[in-house]
Every structure is written in structure tokens, then in C-alpha cells.
Write a protein that binds this DNA or RNA. Structure first.
Length: 601
RNA sequence: GGGGACGUAGUUCAGCUGGUUAGAACGCAUGCCUGUCACGCAUGAGGUCGCGGGUUCGAGUCCCGUCGUCCCCGCCA
């Protein structure tokens, strides 16, 4: 079938643009065929571009050639349509279409390209296996939902650049081909042709570069930058992901927080969501106790309390002290099946002791009463501040030791907290307390500086080894390592960590003490970070910053739970790009040139 | 590395305790149709049931293995 040439014709309007006021205008539209309705001598074509759909009418008495063309047309063919905008008769107006009051009577139809039948319809509500969508990503992206997501992402980036520029931040690019600095995630490695046996690493983040830019006097830096981590993927984790990386010299935490909060305000204005500032500041320990998470969802109440069991009760049920109690308002009638499910959640999350009490008017109903007695159970429900009509959930860890003193070691206390967090979310889901369209921001602050790695028998930084301890904790670095708090903070939104950062170490002496505590020898430190340690010696200013998880933020703004929905060309959970089939084998010559040999498994 | 779910027509799915020729809807093709907008009507094409092996007279269905996709745990300073 012969194609038509576009020539020097230009679109006069987009497909979502025409209104009543355009009636009588001669227009030239171009787009894809969304649908064709062929009534014989009368043919309607829905012409689509990213702005919308316009109905094109073809009749032989207006243009026999245009009508003949329209008969050949199939979905996703690319057309140019020259014609006249006419008002639709009142009874044929389509209210569902923004352009539904008019239509374009075709004088000429240019067939610019044909198209194979797509493997799935180019519509928003078509549910198609993600595998197929990813294989034909170019068609998937043609759908208006994906168009919306990526265009919103663009506008968000634009807002971020404007906002940060306005606050004096300078966008500077840092290398993608850099050196491997292990500790933390696995690196993606890139072999060097000019230096056989040597490798670049793709950056897990521009952490060291941005600190060096502070040392260089760039004061305030930012970058919307790709980061790479060779770890297993999740719904909210990809091999390559995007951060808004921010760093400032002479930082005051609150100044940084304010800049970020205002950025969030402007970003969420893009979706018409008002944001309340300032955000709540939540100390890590409080977050863990109340919400059982360092990224709590604060959109509903449900706060756990650590409560003590009477010593004789500890003895009877062999549960470590303290346990945790959660008041669930108004759920005293919770069905047994729901409670069983919660118990399952608790156990699979690692809390092996689960109990509950229904607080009724003037009495308690609890399977624990038989073992502990009404009085002890009553003490627990009142510690949970439960009122009649409430349900109290109890969570604990069983202990093997006997006797009255069942203290809970720190790492086990964290297990219990994390289990309580799982149970809390499950309760919220079951009671339908999680409301979409509400935005609960919080800063989680005062993280511990270190956590003890049981397997390796050493402390490791909870954030990263360049995070500064709180100034008042400096003296206790070595003596009370576990108790030292970091000047680190996370930005949390609706139960997602959407950013994290810290005030950094700017003094070489403190940096060396930290390396020592985490078991990094002087030689290893020099080998990995020598260039950075050198830089610290030349007048590093106090500095700090944050990195925002851009994909997650955009996903939340788009109402998506999966960041693949806001990334143009994402990979599957096994790191495969289904469209271009990466990773792939390479030519033996390429390996030869790089001095690499593949060992067959 | 571990756990769970899924894999049948181009797409989304159904297919019972194993039984003759594997179905539906949408899509696609052809024809008819001058006011449709999920157009309608008629006719038709389209399947190595992910792959390999096993059990059985007989496997889409049962068993073992394998591959792929999704979710979760581990991991992600």
C-alpha cells in the first residue's frame, strides 16, 4: 500500500486541543489511529496523540480519496489529517471526550505509516502481563497512563532544578566510571581495555564526589543522578535508580530540612496535594517503639507501647521483658479468624509470643486470663490505655532462660520491634485504615551510629562510614559504641523511605576513629578511600546533605507501588531488560581486547 | 540463597476427582452497513497447553526437574 509523504505540513493542533471555538477552522492533525468505526459509507477515526483523542469523520461526498484511505486504516497506523473543524450535532456530542463537542471532517488523509496489530491494546485499562508490556515497552509507553507518569516525572525534575537553583545549589555531574569502593552494596564493574585486569565501578551513589565538591568550595551542590547497585531487586528497587543528590557546606540540619520540605511542597503541588510543613521529627527509638519501623506509616494511629510483665507472669509464660502492647480502638469484637491471622503475621515476623485481650464494659476477655489471672491482664490493658470497646494486642519473645530476670538484649528488642511493625501494618490493612491520597511526611532522626553485625562480630555503620556522630557523643565513640547517635536522618512518606542523609565527618581524626571502630585497617582505608582521606586534610568544611529516592517519590505521586511504572525502560526482578535483551553475551574479540576469559560453569 | 503465586489462542482468562475434536471474551481477517464513539450484524482464521522427563491404556490436568514473570524474606553502607 502506497504511503503518503508529510512534505512541509505541520500540525496546527494536537489531538486533545480542539473545542467549540475552533469550529470552521482548517486544521492539520497528526497521530495514531486509536479506533476506527466503519459504518460503510461513513467512517469515524479516533486519532490519538499524548494530549487526547479527536474524532475524524470521513465521507465520500466530502472527499472520496480520504474515505478510500480511511477504509485501509487499522489501529496504530500513523496518519496526518487535513480537514475542517465542525460542531457536532447536539445528540452526537461525546461528553467523555475533551474534544467531544467537535469533530474534524477529513479533506485529506495522509497515510504516514502502517502498523502491525499490537500485542495488547493501547489503552489504560487493559490489563496485560508485565512481561509483555516490558517486551513491547515502546507500545506500553504510548498508553496515556505511562505518558502521564513520565511527563509528571519530567515536570518534577524541572521543579526540583528550579527550587534547588533558587537556593544556590549548583548542578554538577560526577563520573559514572569510577573506582570500586566496597563496603555496602555490590558494585557493577566495567573492565578497562587500556588497563587489562583493572575495572571501573559504576557509582552506588556519588557520595565521595559530593563531599569532595564541598571541599572544593562548591558550597551547595545537587545532581539528579543515576546510581547503580548490584543487589537483588524489589518492587521499589532497580539495578539502576535515580537520586536527587544534595550536599551543602556549613549545614544546619534545620536549614536543610526546610529546603527539602519546601521542595516536597512544590513537588506535591504538581498533583494538587497540599503539604503541611514543618514535617514531624521522630527520633529513631521512638519510631521503633511506637511503630516498629524506622520508616513508619503515620497515616493512622496504632502506637505500640513497651510494657512490663509482672515478674511472676514472666516466669509463668517464659516471655522476655518488656513485651509490647497495642491498643486497637473499637475492635473488641475482632473475629477470632482475624486474630489468628495476626498471630501468624507476628510469628512469621519473628515474635513467637502473641496474645490479646478484649476490653468490654466492666470486664476483660482474654485467653491469657487463665494463665496470668485477670489482674495481670488488666494491668497490661490499662498500661496500653485501653478503654471499653478496644482490643489490646500483645507481642513478646519467648526466652529459654528461667527465673525472674528476663531482660531483652538489644538486638532481640529490635526483632520484637520489627515484628510489632509488621503486625501494626497488618491491623491497619485489615481495618482499612490506610487512606490513599493522604501524605504523611516525617523526618526520622537520631539514628544509632553503628549496628552490631552478629555474623561478622563487628560494628558497622548504620548509614555509611562518613556520617558524623553527634558532637556530644564524640567522647563515647570507643567506650559506648552502641550508644552513640549519628547525625543521620531519613525522610519518610507513608511508610516509604524516600530520602536519607547525614551531617558528614569533616575532620580526618574523627574519620580515622570511625574506620577503626568498624574494623577498617589504616591500609585498607588508604587503599579504598586514600584520595578522599587526602582531600579531608586540605581544609574540608563542615558539610552534610541528603539523597532523595527519586523513583519512589515519583511513584508515590503517581499512585503507583512499583517504581517500574515511573521508569521508561526498567528491568525485571532478575535484572533483564526484556526489550533489548540485556545482559547479553559478547563477541570473543571484545573479551580478548579486555583481557577477559569466561569460565564455563 | 530461601519462601509463595503464576505460565493454556495475539491479549485476558475458564478448563472439575486424568477420558474422545482444548473453550469464552476481546482482538484479528473477510463481507454488509451514512451518526458511530467499547458501533452493529454475518462468516472465518488462530493453540508444540513455557520446556524436558516420568507415571498411565490415556496427561493441559498427577509426579520430578528446568526456564521465565511477579511478590516477600535474606541482601540493598
Amino acid at each position: 500500500m502506497p504511503f503518503d509523504l508529510l512534505g512541509d505540513r505541520q500540525r496546527t493542533h494536537t489531538c486533545g486541543e480542539l473545542r467549540k471555538s475552533h469550529a470552521g477552522a482548517r486544521v492539520f492533525l497528526a497521530g495514531w489511529v486509536a479506533r476506527r468505526r466503519d459504518l460503510g459509507n461513513l467512517i469515524f477515526i479516533d486519532l490519538r496523540d499524548h494530549t487526547g483523542i479527536t474524532q475524524v469523520v470521513c465521507r465520500p461526498e466530502m472527499s472520496a480519496t480520504a474515505h478510500a484511505r480511511a477504509e485501509e486504516v487499522r489501529p496504530e497506523y500513523v496518519l496526518g489529517v487535513e480537514g475542517e473543524v465542525v460542531l457536532r450535532a447536539p445528540e452526537t456530542v461525546n461528553r467523555q471526550l475533551a474534544t467531544g463537542e467537535v469533530e474534524v471532517v477529513a479533506h485529506t488523509i495522509l497515510l504516514l505509516n502502517e502498523a502491525k496489530t499490537p500485542p495488547f491494546p493501547i489503552e489504560d485499562d487493559s490489563k496485560t502481563a508485565e512481561e509483555t508490556r516490558l517486551r513491547y515497552r515502546y507500545l506500553d509507553l504510548r498508553r496515556s497512563r505511562m505518558q502521564h507518569h513520565l511527563r509528571l516525572r519530567h515536570r518534577a525534575a524541572w521543579v526540583a532544578r528550579q527550587h534547588l537553583s533558587a537556593h544556590g545549589f549548583v548542578e554538577i555531574e560526577t563520573p559514572f566510571l569510577t573506582r570500586s569502593t566496597p563496603e555496602g552494596a555490590r558494585d557493577y564493574l566495567v573492565p578497562s581495555r587500556l588497563h587489562p585486569g583493572h575495572f571501573y565501578a559504576l557509582p552506588q551513589s556519588p557520595q565521595l564526589f559530593k563531599q569532595i565538591l564541598m571541599i572544593s568550595g562548591f558550597d551547595r551542590y545537587f545532581q539528579i543522578v543515576r546510581c547503580f547497585r548490584d543487589e537483588d531487586f524489589r518492587a521499589d528497587r532497580q539495578a539502576e535508580f535515580t537520586q536527587v543528590d544534595i550536599e551543602m557546606a556549613f549545614p544546619q540540619r534545620e536549614v536543610l530540612f526546610d529546603i527539602i520540605e519546601r521542595l516536597m511542597e512544590q513537588l506535591f503541588a504538581l498533583i494538587g496535594a497540599p503539604i503541611a510543613r514543618p514535617f514531624q521529627r521522630l527520633p529513631y527509638h521512638e519510631a521503633m517503639e511506637k511503630y516498629g519501623s524506622d520508616k513508619p506509616h503515620l497515616g493512622f494511629g496504632l502506637e505500640w507501647k513497651r510494657v512490663s510483665l509482672p515478674p511472676e507472669a514472666q516466669f509463668k509464660i517464659q516471655v522476655a521483658d518488656p513485651i509490647k502492647a497495642l491498643r486497637v480502638p473499637g475492635w473488641s469484637e475482632a473475629p477470632r479468624s482475624q486474630l489468628d491471622k495476626l498471630q501468624e503475621v507476628a510469628k512469621s515476623a519473628g515474635a513467637d509470643w502473641f496474645g490479646y485481650a478484649r476490653v468490654l464494659a466492666g470486664q476483660l476477655e482474654s485467653p491469657l486470663s487463665k494463665v496470668l489471672g485477670d489482674e495481670a491482664v488488666g494491668a497490661l490493658t490499662s498500661a496500653a490505655e485501653a478503654a471499653p470497646g478496644d482490643l489490646v494486642l500483645l507481642l513478646g519473645l519467648k526466652t529459654a532462660s528461667s527465673g525472674p530476670a528476663f531482660g531483652l538484649p538489644v538486638h532481640l528488642a529490635r526483632h520484637l520491634d520489627e515484628a510489632s511493625g509488621e503486625v501494626r501494618l497488618e491491623v491497619a490493612r485489615r481495618l482499612n485504615l490506610i487512606r490513599p491520597g493522604t501524605w504523611n511526611f516525617a523526618w526520622v532522626v537520631d539514628f544509632p551510629m553503628f549496628e552490631f553485625n552478629q555474623k561478622e562480630g563487628r560494628y558497622q555503620p548504620m548509614h555509611h562510614p562518613f556520617t558524623s556522630p553527634r558532637e556530644e557523643d564524640l567522647d563515647r565513640l570507643e567506650s559506648d559504641t552502641a550508644g552513640v547517635r549519628a547525625r543521620a536522618y531519613d525522610l519518610v512518606l507513608n511508610g516509604s523511605e524516600i530520602g536519607g542523609g547525614s551531617i558528614r565527618i569533616h575532620r580526618p581524626d574523627i574519620q580515622h576513629r570511625i574506620f577503626k571502630i568498624i574494623g577498617l585497617t589504616e591500609e585498607k582505608a588508604r587503599e579504598r578511600f586514600g584520595f578522599f582521606l587526602d582531600a579531608l586534610e586540605y581544609g574540608a568544611p563542615p558539610h552534610g546533605g541528603i539523597a532523595l529516592g527519586w523513583d519512589r517519590i515519583i511513584a508515590l505521586m503517581c499512585g503507583e507501588t512499583n517504581i517500574r511504572e515511573v521508569i521508561a525502560f526498567p528491568k525485571t526482578a532478575s535484572g533483564v531488560d526484556l526489550m533489548c535483551d540485556a545482559p547479553s553475551a559478547v563477541e570473543p574479540e571484545q573479551l580478548e581486547e579486555l583481557g577477559l576469559e569466561i569460565r564455563r560453569q
